[in-house]
Design a protein around this nucleic acid. Structure first.
Lengths: 137, 137
DNA sequence: CGTACATTTCGTCATCGGGCGAAATGTAGG
DNA sequence: CCTACATTTCGCCCGATGACGAAATGTACG
């Protein structure tokens, strides 16, 4: 049951769902993912660690960059099934489509220049917030 | 994406996973579920409300009792897929098997007597705790 | 070596989520 | 009506989680 919980909680966070959908296009390095999500590098790293611990992704170091990819096989028996769920109505989701569009643009930029773009906040756009102004005071 | 998140978070909690697996045996009233989970009625009610809001279950009132059942159809397009995940390795899970065993015993008890049994804590056995934290008793 | 840079780890903060008990709600039966 | 009882709602506590920035790590390159 623990594996089931871990798999569903890993994929059930909207940010991590976006990452999994991004990785369907092939392996990406952290800074590319960060550029699309528009989050702090430490935050992105943590999400990737959660996905890795759950068995969704593998990482691979290449020089300064670390590439993440969807794990072709997982020791968590539930991961495969959860991955299958990602192929449904999610492919028509606005955020997912926007991420894919920005990914296409980003893939045209040489890797070495991406992090400069990130700091300029050119491509990053935050996830549409659910309660836009509902803050308690 | 919201529907996806809601569905995975609803099913990803171990207590709610147990409830979903219990309901595979057919509809159950709250006090029966409570008897198996060994949790406070308010807690059970809240979990059922989450499952209902996510589109996993329907409820039906009959006299004093409220019966919950797996929803034959859901407005949440992801629920069906998540439900399919419950049929995997989870059927060999110790907790799930124990729940089923206690359910069989419980189904032999007349509904009117169940709540007395509950208060006597005869059947209830808590989910094996991950950190055996100190609870007041 | 030392610098530059991508990534992770750590510490902190605010919010979320699950647990409970008490009170409210709703229904059957006297 | 009033009581009994199943269930839900509410308020609270506390541990888990996601966000960030700062510091640590690891790698390439001069």
């Amino acid at each position: 049951m623990r594996d089931f919980e871990v798999a569903l909680k890993a994929a059930g966070d909207p940010t991590r769902t976006r990452v999994l959908k991004l990785l369907e296009s092939g392996e990406l390095c952290v800074c590319q993912i960060q550029g699309i999500l528009g989050l702090a590098p430490s935050t992105v790293s943590k999400h990737l660690a959660v996905l890795k611990a759950a068995g969704f992704v593998d990482d691979r170091r290449e020089g300064k960059w670390i590439y993440y990819t969807l794990a072709p096989a997982s020791r968590n028996p539930h991961v495969l099934g959860v991955r299958a769920l990602l192929g449904g109505p999610l492919d028509r989701d606005r955020t997912i489509l926007g991420d894919r569009r920005r990914l296409r643009a980003l893939l045209r930029v040489p890797l070495a220049e991406i992090c400069d773009l990130i700091s300029a906040r050119t491509l990053a756009r935050p996830l549409t917030r659910r309660p836009p102004a509902e803050r308690r005071s």
